[in-house]
Structure formats: C-alpha cells, structure tokens
Design a protein around this nucleic acid. Structure first.
Lengths: 217, 217
DNA sequence: TTAATGCTGTGAACATAAGCACAAGATTTG
DNA sequence: CAAATCTTGTGCTTATGTTCACAGCATTAA
C-alpha cells in the first residue's frame, strides 16, 4: 500500500508523537530535536529518529524537526484529516463512560452509533448518540459507513456479537472484553483488557520490584 | 527475587492463561493440552509451552497439563491468594465507570479508596467506595496499605498527582491519562491510552489492510 | 568566510520474542 | 505386554525491536 513496512512497534508510537507535536505547535514552538521529544514521550531518542526515518527524511541535520510540518505530516499519516465514525456495542457501565469520553478532542473520531439489548434505552439518545437495537447493526453499520467498533458487551456474548459485527462489515474492533475473540484475518482486533492490565501490574510489582521503568498498552 | 527472569512478554500473558484455566476448571475439565489452550487464548502452542516452562515442568508428556493444578499454580503466581487494595484517583467520567467495573470478579483486587477534588462528592460513598479529598492521599494510602493507583485525572494535573502518589508510597500506576508521566525507577507504570489505542487501530486499518491477525494492550 | 557546533539518519551490535521441529517420555490401545 | 499415539520441553532459527555510535551535513557563531 501507501507507506509500506512500518514496524508495528513504530505504528503504536505514532499517536504519542502526534499528540505531543500538537501540544508543541499550540505552544508556538517551531523546532524540536529528537532529544527533547524523547524527554516528553519517554522513548529513546534513537528510537524516535529511527521511527521517523521510516517515513523519509523529515528532519534537518544540525537543526532538528520543524514542529508544524511534522505535526501536519503525522496528522495526515494518522488520518486525522477526515472524521472516523465508530460504533459502540454495549452501553453498560464502561460503555456509557466511553460515550462521554472525549475521543473527539484530540482525535478526529466520533462514536456515531451505540447498540444495546436493553429495551429501556434503545431508541433514546445518550450523550448525543442514538442507541439502536442489536439487530439494527446489520443495517446501521453499512449505512453510517462505520468500520470500527468498540466492544463492551458481557463476555458470554462477545464472540456472537463479533460475528455479527464482522458480517455487518466492521474491519477493526477495540475489544474491552476479556475474551480472545476469533475474527477473519482481514479484521483487526485491539485488545484492551483492564483486569489483565491490573493483574500484570501487580505481578510486576511483586516480582520485578525496582528494576526498570515501563511501558505499554 | 522468587521466580527470576520471566520475560515481560510472558508475564503479560499470564493473566490470560489464568482466566481461561479458571473457566476450564469451573467447567470440570481435568486436563488440557497446549494446543487446546492455544485455540482459546490465541497464542501459539509453542509459545504457551515455552511460557509455562519458565516456571518449571508443569505438564506431563503425552498427557498435557492438569487444569486444577495449573490454575492453582498461576493463582499463587499472580498473587490471587491475597486481596490487593487499589486507589482510584479522579472520579470523573471514566473513573466512575471503573468504580463500578468488576475488577473483583475474576481478580482478587478491590478499589478501596477514591480521591477527587470535587467538593460535592468528597465525603460521600460511591458504589460502596469512600471518596476522599486529594490531600488525604498522604494519609490514607499508607494507612490502607495501598500500593497501586488507577489514574484518571485530567492531563494537566497528571504529573503533579503522580508526584504526590509516589510520595505517598504508591509503587504501581495504571495511567489512563495520555501524558507520559515521569516516575522514580522503582515505580511501575502501565499506560492505558484509549485515544492512542483507537488511533493505532485506525492507522492499521488504513495501512495494513488485510494482513494479519493482531494483538495487544 | 571559516571554524565550531548541533542533530539527523543509519550501519551494526545487541536484546527480546516467536515459532519450527523433534527427541524423550508418558499414556493409551489392542 | 508391546505397539501406537500423544504431548511436553527445548535447541535452534528466524523475526522483530532497541540502542550505540558516528559520518555527514546544516546551522550558527566568530
């Protein structure tokens, strides 16, 4: 495709860079070096330079990087120049919080439809977002050109729901359930398992006490 | 310490294994092979065997693994035999959802104190958890023997809050803010950046269309 | 204009992780 | 009891990611 062969590890850091560049740009800063960036985003400066280099020579030797240019470049790279619509599946405890969560603020993304089984909320508008019946996914998802779903349903129905989502044409799923779901290989899953994360943190504390700084999602 | 040198990648998978073993055990299953596990947790069977092997020979050739034993072993390894108390810092939109989130269900962990600046909620009980003033961290955290904090405060105050948490003795932070916080090296940070996660997912869809299955937090 | 300085971009070393493939041993079957 | 079958545990290969260290060039200072 367009930009081939960007390592996954690099891709995962792009939003971090982008966010900080926006902050710098808003503050009126014109140039920045990999060392300065490194401090702010906690990524080794060599790693930053290597990451950037996959996209070509974005900086100038002896000078650094032009904040505005770089920011705009990443904006394009991360598709921030067009609004992405996302569906929320399951308006429970966590789902409800995500409806209110301001993805839009620094991310050209909006939850444009929510789906749930609970009759009493179907048909209503939650935080400005309409709640549909589960069965309506098949219709609404293609209609609203949604390719991404945030999954916050109970574990027991996770796989079934995913099957329907895939059938409706969803291409990416942010999976908040603890289930490791099965999808066709053209569908991308990003697991966000909070319980897991917490358990891992506890494990590290107890077993790697005082050893390193740390990382990632 | 106790079990030395478990690779990070392995450590991050332990809760996944543990969760599934509990399910198998509850279902009355007595033995399981790495291939079966592989199907359920979406981790290559060789990787599973390697992961387990760091803890010694847990299985039997020609048989597989004893579900109950293995489950109990991981329970101990993941400290599930004692309750871990956690503090929630920032009872906003997301924080509130996390108070209700059932960490306890399959994870011997409980949010035992919440902290916020909003006068109107300080002193009240939210979902059974008392909300304290921010200043009370210094007192409550050691008192309640809390070592882990979930950080859901606004980005602008993230670093300041972290500094106080560290001073109060916190050793692990689950960071929901987009800020890459600075901590002493004996403190562990687990970043959970939802905006980031979503942006990365979008990036992968647009640039790696139909290429692989996927992964992680 | 020339010298000093700064910072990128990258070859190469190192580190971590994943997975193949199979010997070794246990179990099950006949 | 012997043969057939199964599944672990691991040496080794390959893949992916990180970091060092520096040549090369642009910028800045004199």
């Amino acid at each position: 495709m367009s930009t081939q062969k960007i390592p996954q590890a690099t891709a995962k850091r792009l939003p971090i860079y982008y966010r900080y560049l926006k902050i710098l740009n808003d503050a009126g800063k014109e140039r920045v070096s990999s060392t300065e960036l490194s401090d702010a985003v906690k990524v080794d400066s060599a790693t930053i330079r290597r990451d950037f280099s996959y996209f070509g020579a974005l900086g100038k030797r002896g000078y650094g990087y032009d904040v505005e240019n770089l920011m705009k470049f990443f904006s394009k790279t991360l598709n921030q120049d067009h609004l992405t619509s996302v569906a929320l599946i399951g308006v429970g405890n966590l789902g409800h919080a995500l409806l209110n969560y301001n993805f839009h603020q620094n991310n050209n993304t909006r939850i444009s439809a929510a789906f749930d089984v609970k009759e009493e909320i179907v048909g209503t508008i939650y935080s400005g977002i309409p709640v549909y019946q589960m069965d309506e996914m098949m219709e609404q998802i293609p209609l609203q050109q949604i390719e991404i779903a945030i999954l916050t349903v109970p574990a027991q129905v996770a796989q079934d729901t995913v099957n329907k989502l895939v059938e409706a044409g969803v291409k990416g799923i942010m999976n908040f359930t603890p289930v490791r779901i099965t999808v066709p290989k053209n569908v991308r899953v990003q697991n966000v398992d909070l319980t897991n994360e917490l358990q891992t943190l506890i494990y590290f504390l107890d077993n790697y006490a005082g050893e390193e700084v740390s990382e990632e999602e």
